[in-house]
Design a protein around this nucleic acid. Structure first.
Lengths: 152, 152
DNA sequence: GATGAAACCTTCACCCC
DNA sequence: GGGGTGAAGGTTTCATC
């Protein structure tokens, strides 16, 4: 399960262009297609590669307004967390969510069309979720860097 | 450039499994491979799909410790931002970074192996970056939700 | 949006170092 | 243990309907 420099090269290519053919990939990393495919299968089996996804421009689909939301619950007992997290997963606006240490319990990224839709989301959905005690919103201006993975 | 329900179905499949064959995809969305491929090409041409990436388990590569870092600069003049952002992009530990409104200028996600490596990153790299005035670290416990895109 | 044929890619057994 | 070769099978692509 140890990773060598060839695996790393393969990961570097696949993290940026997951749909390359084994032939092109082989050429780019300096290998023939067969061992290249073998390595990919091993990386998948070892769950180093956990899947492949299309990058989709949210703005083009009408969700161009993002907000980072910090949420504090009234209690941090397990049931409260489990219940809240279930609600989170069913919520299409929330695309990313972390359980945090520190003064807030959850940090999440919300995608909406505009500030008006965010207000609706805040007042009709988030504040009504089970156990929510306080909410803080931070609005990003622009994404500076987006990297699928750390490879060095 | 308008998106219909079939396009949405295609995006839903591709966002989760970018390496499906056109044949499988066609079957799953109820189409034959040719119009399916045509729609994908159009979604790519319209830059609704901006690319494809492998999902890589950072923990398995030795970067299992993540930290959200809020950074404030001493000045918000354009040159300062440009210079800082250039440094950010060259920094392998920083996998995600947003320019923010509010009390901090940048929010970023840092991937390191452990707390010791984070200390090194903080004291030797981040604090020495041009214009950095203050830093606040928030440590996540666990990722609750991760969704490539919002599709509904 | 579907069909069919040509070109291409993936995969496997097998060989090699 | 890992990489290469070639042939079989499957997939993509394009003109055409």
């Amino acid at each position: 399960m140890a990773i060598d420099e060839l695996d790393r090269k393969i990961l570097r290519v696949l993290s940026v262009d997951a749909r390359v053919s084994h032939q092109d990939l082989a050429e780019r990393v300096g290998l023939s297609p067969t061992p290249c495919a073998r390595r990919i299968r091993k990386l998948e089996a070892d769950q180093i590669i956990t899947g492949y996804g299309a990058r989709i421009d949210a703005g083009k689909l009408g969700f161009g307004f993002s907000v980072f939301v910090s949420v504090k619950l009234d209690q941090q007992v397990e049931n409260r967390l489990v219940e809240f997290e279930k609600t989170i997963r069913d919520c299409p606006e929330i695309v990313d969510c972390w359980l945090m240490t520190g003064s807030f319990d959850y940090l999440m990224l919300v995608l909406v069309s505009d500030l008006a839709e965010y207000e609706q989301f805040l007042t009709r959905r988030l504040t009504r979720m089970p156990g929510v005690a306080s909410i803080e919103s931070s609005v990003p201006i622009r994404r500076v860097k987006e990297q699928a993975a750390r490879l060095r």
